[in-house]
Computed example of a mutant assay.
Amino acid sequence: MTCRKLKKVLTCNDFDVETVSKVVLEALFFKAEASFRQRAITSEAANVSFSHYVERAYKHRPVKIVEFEQPWQQCIVYLDLKREECAHLFPAGKVYSQAFHLGGQGFFFSAQCNMDQQSSFHSFGLFLGMQERGSVTFAVNYEFAARSKPTEDYVIKHKGYYKFMGRKAVGYRNLFGIPWTLFMSDESNYFINGVLHIRAKLTLRK
């Protein structure tokens, strides 16, 4: 379940409050862990007769979100993709993230393998889409970053301003400015222990 749905369960009156609070808070803390810690917890839990933590295949990739209300509405979203997940995108695949929210509006990521229109090679693309249809207008400042070797810190790749109008998206067909083969190679700077770590900062513009 997404963090948003787990929080809704906390306010539901159909379950025992004490039991629900314990289970939901455990799940939220689990989601807040780093990927390697989640795998370790899942592995440890597999050795006991009963466990809350069961590894599952996601139709939409899970994200981690940090939300701020002051001094302005902002969210920082983390998306991790395994190397094999990225490999399966070639030559024209897409993978979508779970939805997350800013200012009451739903957003999602689309990671994909694109054919670069100018250089005629494949590349890794990342797009931010808004779920709402119709005449909704929503303006945000955005920043895309990824962890990179050798420091393994997040390095900003692109940032800007975009006004969403209905079901539109903003993004980059070649997020890292390199061909797909170099992005996926053993010498790639962007896979750390086999995982691509992406971060986006979104700030609501009034």
Rank of each mutant, 00 (worst) to 15 (best):
T2V: 01
K5I: 04
K7T: 13
T11H: 12
C12G: 08
D16L: 11
E18C: 11
E18S: 15
L25C: 14
A27W: 09
L28G: 05
F29R: 14
S35Y: 12
A40S: 14
A40V: 06
E44Y: 14
N47A: 03
V48K: 09
S51K: 12
V54H: 13
E55N: 07
R56K: 15
H60W: 02
R61I: 06
E67S: 15
Q70F: 11
P71C: 08
L79Y: 05
D80R: 11
D80I: 05
L81E: 06
R83Q: 10
E85I: 00
C86M: 10
A87W: 10
H88I: 02
Y96R: 09
G104R: 12
A111Y: 00
Q112R: 10
N114P: 01
D116Y: 12
D116S: 11
Q117F: 12
Q117V: 06
S119M: 13
S119E: 15
S123R: 02
F124E: 02
G125Y: 06
Q131L: 08
S135L: 12
V136D: 02
V136F: 10
V136R: 12
Y142C: 00
A146T: 05
K149V: 00
E152S: 07
E152I: 01
D153K: 13
I156W: 00
K159I: 00
Y161H: 14
Y162P: 01
K163S: 13
K163R: 15
F164L: 04
V170N: 05
V170T: 07
N174T: 10
L182W: 07
D186C: 07
S188Y: 08
F191L: 05
I192S: 06
G194W: 09
L196G: 03
L196N: 04
H197F: 09
R199N: 08
A200Y: 07
L202G: 01
